[in-house]
Amino acid sequence: MTTYAVEATDLVKIFGKHRAVDGISLKVPKGIVYGFLGPNGAGKTTMIRMLATLLKPNEGHAKVMGYDLGKEADKVRHSISLTGQFASVDEELSGRENLIFISRLVGYSRKQAKLRADELLHAFQLEDVAKRQVKKYSGGMRRRIDIAASIVTSPELLFLDEPTTGLDPRSRNQVWDIVKALVKNGTTVFLTTQYLEEADQLADLIGVIDRGKLIAEGTSKELKSSIGAGSLTVHFDDSEELKKAQNIFISQFEQEPDINEQDISLTVMIKEHAKAAKAIGELANTNVQIKDFSMSQPSLDEVFLTLTGNVQDQEGGDSTNE
């Protein structure tokens, strides 16, 4: 028995001239949520499709649940389930038909398949829409039926490709709860996301991917301490106060804040939360009038800014003129 759900070594996938995945090695211990974090076009889906036996890597090799991706693809398929980024059930069929259909393919008898479908519909609160075509589902329902179809039999390893992109907060929380329940039950979850907050909430281990390369890996705590806790923004009533505050930051904290004249506000990057509290306290002590202040988590942009040292281009992953 290996202790790793995924052991990838130097995986490369090339489309034409474009290296969508450019030499990624990673190890995912069993029983955790691994968060694969990166912007659009970074190569997340390509990586997942290779690990789920759908794409052959051009270079490198990997073991999934202890089985070799190339030589033991069928054994890999026995241990995994995939919930793709887009419609991973048949949208023309109803939710119940989809679940019966997948249950039959997994090997259940006709009777067991119906039973299993109804169990899943109940647990995922989809009973009311069981007979409706999936294409008429809301985004949240669709994601739940996608995941339900993936756990017709509990997989040892579940791939979830951007499970919450485009969902409202309530649906997103439902998906998070489902993931937590799965992991509690012993399933390893490999999920991709564009949101730092999601990786932060769910993932035990986060890998940051950009332009086909793994540029950082660690727990959410480790990643954050490498890039700081976020930023502090303070608003003032007039620019007089703003000026005073700016001087305090420079003299007391040896930090040059970003000034926004229009909003009459300033922003500083903060290494740890305690420091932010200290700064606000200092402003109050010196009688600077504050209108309000807010802390924000480091955004994905800031993570990339810090990790890659350059602003990530919005075209995403075009590497022709590097």
């Binding site: 647990a123 995922f124 756990i151 039999t153 040892e156 709860d177 329940a181 509690k184 039950n185 012993g186």
Partner: peptide
């Protein structure tokens, strides 16, 4: 809100049919 317990309940079965 979804009750995680309902989902945990249906996950207990890990044996995969042939």
């Amino acid at each position: 809100m979804n009750k995680p317990s309902a989902i945990e309940e249906i996950l207990t079965n890990r044996t995969r049919p042939k």
